[in-house]
Simulated scan of single mutants.
Amino acid sequence: MKNLKKKLGLALAVTLSTVTFATAYSTTAEPTTAATSENVNENTIRNDEPTSDRINQFKDIAMYYYWHGGDIQQAEKDIFKGITLKGKYDVVENAFKEATLLDPYDLDLKLSLASTQIIQKKTPEALQTYKQILNLDPNHFNANLLYGVYSKVNGDNSSYKSSISNLKQIDAKKTNEYLQKLETTETILDENLNTSAPADLPQKDHAIVILGYALAEDGSMREPLIERLKAGLAIAKQYPNSKIIVTGGVPKQGITEADAMSNWLISQGIEKDRIILENKSTDTVENGLFSTAILDKEGIKDVTLVTSASHMRRALTVFKEASDFYNKMNGNNIDRNFTNVVYLDYPSLEEAHKVSKDEILVIYRDLIRTSGIWQYPGLQR
């Protein structure tokens, strides 16, 4: 614990005094070799430490805030003096900005910075960061792809076409694979959303996948998750032979989303042996990847996804990409069929079918993540 606090400049020990840091976030970075005299102010990242250690400290701070947040005012005081922060992703962004100043040659740090800007929907800033990467390495495949896709989302089709042209010169086969993924996603954007189950779903080799939603701090389920479960329960009663996969692995008070969902379904009369827990995922991308592994193992070709209307197009994109990946990895040719049932979190179904620019941005972000390109290279998918 002592070494870990020193490694983070002790700033997080102050900022996150109510958290046992060693159990909340584990790091694989090397411990600091800087002087540790008791009379040295250790509430800041010190300039008398090796540059690599200081970079790792900023990366650790970024990843901690990405997951847990913290006291923003304390971060302003102890880590980012003179910078006004607005939220936890502001801390992540500024940590990577500081890291890129320490090593302006490290393109992975720049990719991480751009990803945080995308999370905050700061698309122009992210595009500028990707442009820096491409100025340094014009043949960087991932940067070209990300720059092109987000340019298109931002309404700049000329830059998108230029990026695709560059990508074809770098790796034509890989580029064509991504063009197919983008085309599939375009189709999903026009998908009809259903508020009840279709009447002609298969009576066997069919699964209902109910996507999780973050639990409250006391471990209870929030309204969106309960509504998703109600929608899933209706289908489960309509198709009693279908397996039910519940997803979500982030624990609160020792219980995961999948655990809570399973308990609720059982309390509503669903047999326990129908339910399969996917309790390792931390977000939609991992919901898709880890649930697809279960679908493959169970030999299930027909899937009904259940989630909120605002989340469904992203879920369908992720699950389709995950299914294609598993086909490729295992040498299979499973033409998995996806249907959907939504909890309507819009005023009307008509409103739900309108796709905003912000939603498109997040859909493409998660498509790219599911395809294997990490948001934070070497740190976080």
Rank of each mutant, 00 (worst) to 15 (best):
S52D: 09
V40C: 08
I118V: 15
E125D: 12
K122E: 10
L111D: 00
I45W: 00
A95W: 02
K122H: 07
T116H: 00
I119P: 04
L127H: 01
R54H: 04
N56E: 13
A99L: 06
K81G: 03
D48R: 01
L85V: 10
N41K: 05
D103H: 07
L102R: 04
K59G: 05
K97H: 04
K121V: 01
K97G: 10
V40L: 06
A95K: 02
K122G: 04
I72L: 15
I118L: 15
D71M: 06
I55C: 01
L109F: 11
W67Q: 13
S52C: 05
Y64N: 08
D106Q: 09
T84W: 09
I61V: 13
L113R: 10
L109K: 05
G87F: 05
I61E: 00
D106A: 10
D90K: 06
P104F: 10
K110H: 11
F96I: 01
K121E: 11
D60E: 15
L109H: 08
V91W: 03
F96L: 05
S52W: 01
Y64D: 06
P104E: 12
Q73W: 02
K81T: 13
H68A: 03
G82R: 12
D78N: 15
K110F: 14
Y66W: 15
G87M: 01
N56L: 12
I45G: 05
N41E: 04
F58N: 05
E42G: 10
V92P: 02
D71P: 08
D71E: 10
S112P: 11
N39S: 14
F96Y: 15
P50S: 09
K122W: 00
A62Q: 01
L109S: 08
A114C: 06
Q120E: 14
Y65Q: 03
E76D: 05
R54C: 02
A126G: 11
Q120G: 09
T116P: 03
E76R: 10
S52Q: 12
I119N: 14
K121P: 00
V91E: 10
A95S: 14
I55Y: 06
A126R: 03
L113M: 11
N43E: 06
L113E: 07
I79Q: 04
D106R: 04
N39I: 07
N39Y: 09
D106L: 07
S115D: 12
K88N: 13
K110Q: 13
L109T: 06
T84S: 14
K97W: 00
E98I: 00
L101T: 15
K59S: 13
L101M: 14
D48M: 01
Q73L: 13
L113V: 04
I79V: 15
V92H: 02
